[in-house]
């Protein structure tokens, strides 16, 4: 099992990046991290992730793009 799953949503037309993330989250196993690359800060995604019980950390990378690391929140959180 890979520890990291990569979804590259850079320069895809909205809402395709979000759709791809949702597909990947569906099969994300506990302990795995989803690394999501996107060309602008994916603010609409954050409340969706919170509602679905995921934790995320976003930071800027090159070209004005963002990297968001998503993991399943611990059960008691």
């Amino acid at each position: 099992m890979n520890a990291e799953v990569l979804v590259d949503g850079r320069w895809l037309e909205p809402p395709e990046p979000m759709e791809r993330v949702l597909v990947a989250l569906d099969v994300l196993r506990p302990g795995q991290t989803l690394r999501f690359l996107i060309h602008r800060e994916p603010i609409p995604l954050y409340p969706v992730l919170r509602d679905m019980g995921f934790r995320y950390a976003a930071h800027p990378i090159e070209d004005g793009c963002f990297e968001v690391l998503i993991t399943r929140a611990p059960k008691d959180a």
């Binding site: 603010i43 609409p44 954050y46 409340p47």
Partner: peptide, 10 residues
């Protein structure tokens, strides 16, 4: 300040 986002509740 972060730019605000589209949230379902809003």
């Amino acid at each position: 300040m972060a730019s605000p986002g589209l949230s379902y509740e809003q």
